[in-house]
Simulated assay, not measured.
Amino acid sequence: MKKLFFKFLTLLFSPLIIAQASGNINYQNRQYAANNTINISFPENEAIMVSVKGLANVKADAYTAIFSITQTGKTTQEVNELMDKRIMQSLNEIKLKKGVETFIDMISFVPVYEYEAEKKVFNRKTYNEVPAGFELKKNIHIKYTDPNQLNEFISILSNYEIYDLVRVDYFSNSLETIKKEMMNKAKILIQEKVKNYEMVLGETFTNAEKRIADDFIVNVPVEMYRSYEAYNSSSLNLKKAANINQLNKSVTLYYQPVVSKEFDFVMNPAVLEPVIQIQYEIKIAITKERKLLSKTDKEFILVTPNGDLKTLNISAARQN
């Protein structure tokens, strides 16, 4: 009896166990579908297509974080003084960190208006726009090499009411070197594929017409974040009209790199932190050489009364 009860509990809670192992994203509709089958189409125009796709995960060696800061005030002098004070005090602390560079980017400086009610005895109120002050916006760019320093920057800037982290850009000095490595690796693999096709077909492509094309795609982490809402709502069977008050659901962001399953080779396949991803693909179209007719062989075409064209095999007729 105890064994049956344990099996019942296992079946009952097994979906929850799976969801916990795969992540809360399963509460949301999937943003990408699993492709577990191979779909091969025959090449067009009698050409054999040979392709190799590669992926490289590159760890960044430099970062730039951009923070936005907004300041308002009654006069231009007040706005500038308050803004400069917040920026200078925060940057004086940040510049004490090792290997850090900063830059201030001017964004906008505009007047701000508000509405003032004009009271009348026998008419409705009229609201007029009147100057209320000025608004100044700037961005703080911080370049650094240690990714752990970002938490320190956030802690320092928050002391001066600077909270808006706009984005973080990733840079690497080895991209060109890695691109060359990918091209060399793809060249070896595509030559192996061509030789394999020659062996399968029992012929050579030495004199065949060939066309080649290749290209790179570089994906940076800021482009690869996705969002989802993790929640499980109850369903209500309401017989009468009723008011339902729903709470705002928390929206979560997560890093979704390019999945490596569709590539012929992957450099640095294990991804722990957000990385720069380089995709490379090379394609070769091989048009098999057609056998030419000898001088003694002639091709005769018969036009039928219906207007159809038929090729007559004269050589076979002579042998018979």
Rank of each mutant, 00 (worst) to 15 (best):
L4M: 12
F5D: 10
K7L: 15
T37M: 11
I38S: 10
S41K: 12
E44M: 08
K53I: 14
T64S: 04
A65I: 03
K74V: 11
T76Q: 12
L91N: 12
N92R: 14
K97L: 15
K97P: 00
K98D: 07
E101N: 08
T102R: 03
T102V: 14
I107L: 01
I107R: 05
F109A: 09
F109I: 12
P111T: 13
E118H: 09
V121T: 09
E135Y: 01
I140V: 09
K143A: 07
T145S: 12
T145L: 05
Y163L: 03
L165G: 06
V166L: 08
N173T: 09
N173H: 03
L175Q: 09
I178G: 10
K185D: 05
I188H: 04
K193D: 05
M199H: 07
E203F: 01
T204R: 05
F205E: 06
F205R: 04
Y225M: 13
Y225S: 13
Y231V: 07
Y231S: 15
S234A: 13
K239E: 13
N243T: 13
N245H: 14
Q246D: 03
S250T: 12
L253R: 10
V259A: 10
M267C: 07
N268F: 08
A270W: 00
L272Q: 09
I276S: 01
S294L: 04
D297P: 03
I301E: 13
A316T: 00
A317Y: 01
